[in-house]
Nucleic acid binder design. Structure first.
Lengths: 338, 338
DNA sequence: TAAGTTAAAGCGAACGTTCGCCCGAACGTT
DNA sequence: AACGTTCGGGCGAACGTTCGCTTTAACTTA
């Protein structure tokens, strides 16, 4: 490990006091063009880079943004994480910040991690994902007046957030099915406690209402977003006297379960019964038939989240405090060819 | 934001000098039981937590471990990232460290990011993944004598690394196919430049040799690990005069391509031609038929990587410097039922 | 010419720790 | 009684910055 080159080395090289070097570096300087030039030359020559540890201590900021994500249940991956994290890391880097991922413990000890990171001065702000109704993290951070941005609608009144319009997404899907001539459309949804699930369901309901189509309570299923729930529910629907001709799922995994159930009963997905997913998981395109789904603009979400957070940290004027992005419909074989 | 409570506040509360508090906190103390008790009580009462920024500056460490991963090519996800990162984050946390993910730029400017993180004192060490032959990062860090651990075999002579035995994995798969009665087994592999790809191919070759089965050059395909390559290559094999009865792929995605080609030509995967993948991507279990694959012990890799790195940073004795883990065969429908 | 104004750069202090050295008291030894 | 040891704890300094105040010199202005 080579000897560190500090601001004092640069100062010596340029024949000025080290504080003057600091001024030039943060260009808040009253400095003659000549000395400025000398200083920059010295910086270049010695390959000086400011030491973040010292800088952060002095200015009482860490330039770190905390992020923790929900650990996956064993068989469910988080297809979004990769791109989301990558997007945030890049956006943060461009603004001189870094992302600090930390363990997402159970809701009980949850707040602990947040509190500790604040107290130890590790982070300047947080990014929250999977925000639910009455989220304890939101409450805590708001109480502490500590900066954060949520991915997912937090409190419309006061908080910063970025969200993808799930209602619009589900409307897109439902309208697509209707355009294909379907009228008997069932939905595989999430529990009522899920904010995201509720939004998506609303989109389905709205599209159905606008098309003046009947929604049967029996065709609105709510459960966990698992393969099994999709499979079993679909089986029941297939066994019923009147079958739906299309099934819209709020998750790709649920859709896969539905597809399997349909295929197991000898019917063809797409031709006999249309199926759609949500999230456009990577596997969607590789299923047989390939799954129609809704793609979220995750990269943009990451960029926006960081933009909002950094601007608020640096007291920059916020053009907008709440960003709602539109998702995109990806039509594949599972919902056409009737 | 509540006023920070510093070590001096604790000292005042306990009626000692603040340096004494520091000693107690780092229990390198010559302190009477009485004062020690007083100090701890004060710490509790005030809810004191040491400020990491200041501590890190003083001791010249950051307790951060840098990690950057290869950004995904658009259609390929990194199913491993989620669990790997999570595993590392947890392991690091347990030892008082944090993971710092940073942008993985193109190989050219690549080293820049590493150098900057070192110079600015942001990190104490690095975790490298996707290590290839003649990896420039490895060369650089070795030259700088900066601590790092590789996921993937680096230099057996000198470096710390954790790897999953790809050769063993591919042997497992090949032997499984042989046990199912297959003798004409083809392999979908990666280019020669890929270290991982070479290891896996070796496993196939070894298993075939041990079983005294013939390996035809035409049945050893090498290309990028894409769906298309799997699809096209398989089509060619199917059109040939003599067909393989089983196809082992070094990637799930390649296997999916193969499955599609087989199904497109009216054959049944499993019953007519067996297919196996590698990595046990989450989608593997949801394909029809479900895909036999090899699961890597990613969680353990993450734990071991951190263990190695932290121990080497803290000069702790290293029980082992190079860890090779065995993968696990997951048998599903795509390779049975002949 | 004296006073006032401005530009350039220096200087001390502080951020919150840890580290190593020093000092005094108590104790035991010859 | 004088001397060495040990223990408990205090003190100054340092890590590498940034911040705000002060000083010096040069330039205006009346």
């Amino acid at each position: 490990m080579p000897a560190r080159v500090t601001i004092k080395d640069v100062a010596a090289q340029a024949h000025v006091s080290y504080q003057t070097v600091s001024k030039v570096l943060n260009n808040q300087a009253q400095v003659s063009a000549d000395t400025e030039k000398r200083i920059w030359r010295a910086v270049k020559k010695l390959g000086y880079v400011p030491n973040h540890r010292a800088r952060d201590l002095r200015i009482q900021r860490s330039h770190m943004l905390g992020y923790s994500w929900r650990p996956d249940t064993p068989n469910q991956i988080n297809p979004i994480l990769d791109m989301f994290l990558h997007s945030m890391v890049e956006a943060a880097d461009a603004k001189g910040y870094h992302i600090l991922p930390f363990p997402h413990s159970d809701p009980e000890n949850h707040i602990h991690s947040y509190r500790d990171l604040i107290r130890t001065g590790r982070v300047d702000g947080f990014i929250l994902s999977s925000v639910e109704y009455q989220d304890s993290r939101v409450k805590f951070l708001r109480r502490e007046k500590f900066p954060f941005v949520a991915f997912g609608e937090a409190d419309p009144e006061s908080d910063l957030f970025v969200d993808v319009d799930g209602t619009a997404g589900m409307m897109l899907v439902t309208q697509h099915l209707i355009a294909q001539g379907h009228t008997r459309i069932a939905i595989l949804g999430w529990p009522k406690t899920s904010r995201v699930g509720q939004n998506r369901l609303d989109g389905y309901l709205k599209a159905m209402r606008e098309a003046r189509l009947e929604t049967r309570p029996a065709w609105i299923a709510r459960g966990e977003g698992s393969f099994d729930f999709g499979y079993e529910t679909t089986r029941k629907w297939l066994d019923a006297r009147v079958r739906p001709t299309a099934i819209a799922a709020v998750t790709d995994l649920l859709a896969v379960g539905a597809m399997r159930a349909i295929q197991a009963s000898g019917l063809r997905v797409g031709a006999d019964i249309a199926v759609t997913g949500f999230d456009d998981t990577p596997m969607a395109q590789y299923l047989t038939p390939a799954l129609t789904s809704i793609r979220q603009p995750i990269w943009q979400v990451g960029q926006q989240v960081i933009e909002l957070l950094v601007n608020s940290l640096e007291q920059a004027p916020l053009a907008e405090t709440q960003v709602i992005l539109k998702p995109e419909l990806i039509v594949r074989e599972s919902s056409v060819g009737r």
